[in-house]
Simulated assay, not measured.
Amino acid sequence: MIFGVPWWVFMMVLFIFLSGYMAFRAMRAERELEEKYIEQQGKVYMDRIEEERQKRMQQERDQQVSH
């Protein structure tokens, strides 16, 4: 007994805090993965927009030259 409380009570409190810390770490890591995925998908989207813009500009140039 420590301060009139059984030792296993202290261990349970310690495990509760440890569990909370591990859950917090897992949530933070998951959020970072989601942000990286979102950034990657955003880059793919922006690349497609840029490719489409380039195609349109090339088509407009081709039409101006043929007239």
Results as ranks from 00 to 15, higher is better:
37 Y>E: 15
55 K>R: 15
11 M>I: 13
7 W>A: 08
27 M>I: 11
21 Y>P: 02
5 V>W: 05
51 E>I: 02
52 E>C: 02
8 W>M: 08
6 P>V: 04
46 M>L: 15
29 A>F: 00
44 V>G: 04
3 F>T: 00
36 K>P: 04
51 E>Y: 07
27 M>Y: 09
7 W>S: 13
18 L>M: 11
31 R>E: 13
41 Q>I: 09
23 A>I: 14
6 P>T: 10
28 R>Y: 01
45 Y>R: 14
21 Y>G: 02
9 V>S: 03
62 D>S: 06
14 L>N: 05
36 K>S: 02
7 W>I: 14
12 M>A: 14
5 V>E: 00
34 E>P: 00
23 A>Y: 11
20 G>M: 02
7 W>G: 00
5 V>S: 12
47 D>H: 00
65 V>N: 08
60 E>H: 07
38 I>N: 10
55 K>P: 06
20 G>K: 10
63 Q>W: 12
64 Q>V: 06
43 K>F: 11
63 Q>G: 07
16 I>R: 00
27 M>N: 06
25 R>N: 15
46 M>A: 13
13 V>Q: 10
16 I>W: 06
56 R>Y: 12
4 G>W: 00
66 S>D: 05
29 A>R: 11
2 I>W: 03
30 E>T: 10
51 E>L: 05
54 Q>I: 13
10 F>W: 12
61 R>T: 04
38 I>M: 07
54 Q>L: 14
19 S>N: 12
36 K>C: 01
27 M>F: 04
7 W>N: 10
28 R>N: 11
63 Q>R: 14
41 Q>F: 07
30 E>G: 08
27 M>D: 11
55 K>Y: 09
2 I>R: 05
65 V>A: 09
67 H>Q: 14
44 V>S: 01
13 V>N: 01
67 H>T: 01
21 Y>N: 06
5 V>F: 06
5 V>K: 07
36 K>T: 04
40 Q>A: 15
35 E>V: 08
32 E>N: 14
65 V>H: 08
65 V>Y: 13
45 Y>C: 04
20 G>V: 01
48 R>Q: 15
25 R>L: 12
4 G>L: 04
30 E>D: 15
59 Q>M: 10
43 K>C: 06
11 M>Q: 15
43 K>H: 13
37 Y>H: 15
61 R>M: 11
67 H>A: 04
26 A>R: 12
17 F>G: 10
9 V>F: 05
9 V>N: 01
37 Y>F: 11
31 R>G: 01
56 R>D: 07
45 Y>P: 02
36 K>L: 13
31 R>I: 05
8 W>T: 03
59 Q>L: 09
58 Q>T: 02
65 V>M: 07
55 K>E: 12
2 I>Y: 11
35 E>P: 00
26 A>K: 12
61 R>D: 12
51 E>G: 07
40 Q>G: 03
25 R>E: 11
16 I>D: 07
54 Q>P: 02
43 K>M: 08
